[in-house]
């Protein structure tokens, strides 16, 4: 799998490159700025682009702007946006239009290589990834009296993974339950929260996210 990495911090970029290399990814290009990133993607479209949200010159949201540009010019390229801090408001913006093939993660997640590699593969395959911190914050802040309280502890755990973008087999693997019971938990959650089970996994993320947001 071919990856382009954009991060203006050389040490971090080289670290990610080295780790991904060990995990079997092929890093086809590195970029220190949004412009370099766009050039690299234009020149040789990768499977996935890993983009730091803050890059020169303003160090604000150059990465997001670049991600939008890539999405518009190369819809087939999956994108994972990395950030030193994650915000729910930014998450909804990242995933708003079409969550398929998109990810929004804390930069620290890179160090958990197995998890990160799994996430990258999932996103590259059209899945969605949302940082657990965003989801847990939403879950913590949720309505004390609402339907969330009717969820069992197991269901809450499954909901968290659901919101992060895990597929049913992924949930089964992460929680150590069978694929079948994972499916049952997911159906139960959707029923309790009154959400339509749309089926496609990326839509599920958005549905859960919107639900949590309004809870």
């Amino acid at each position: 799998m071919r990856v382009v990495i954009a991060d203006d911090n050389l040490l971090v970029r080289k670290g990610i490159v080295a780790l991904l290399g060990e995990a079997g990814f092929e890093v086809s290009a590195e970029a220190g700025t949004a412009a370099e990133l766009l050039d690299a993607v234009d020149a040789d479209a990768p499977d996935i682009a890993i983009v730091d949200i803050r890059m020169p010159p303003t160090q604000t949201e150059e990465g997001l702007v670049a991600a939008h540009a890539i999405r518009a010019r190369h819809p087939g390229v999956a994108i994972v946006v990395l950030s030193s801090h994650v915000e729910h408001g930014v998450a909804t913006r990242v995933l708003a239009e079409d969550p398929a093939g998109l990810g929004y993660l804390l930069k620290d997640r890179v160090t958990d290589l197995d998890d990160f590699a799994g996430t990258l593969r999932r996103v590259a395959a059209g899945g969605t990834a949302l940082d657990p911190l965003v989801v847990s914050r939403l879950l913590d802040a949720g309505d004390d009296d609402g339907p969330l309280q009717t969820l069992t502890p197991r269901e809450r755990e499954v909901l968290q993974l659901l919101a992060e973008g895990c597929s049913n087999p992924g949930i089964a693997e992460r929680t150590g339950i069978t694929r079948r019971s994972a499916e049952k938990h997911v159906s139960s959650i959707f029923a309790k929260l009154g959400l339509p089970d749309t089926g496609t996994e990326d839509r599920r993320v958005l549905a859960v996210l919107r639900y949590l947001q309004s809870a």
Partner: peptide
């Protein structure tokens, strides 16, 4: 820093964390 993404995003974040 969330203000870099605008007041709307920042307020969404506050709303999400509100008890």
């Amino acid at each position: 820093a969330v203000l870099e993404h605008g007041l709307a995003a920042a307020l969404d974040g506050l709303a999400a964390r509100s008890t």
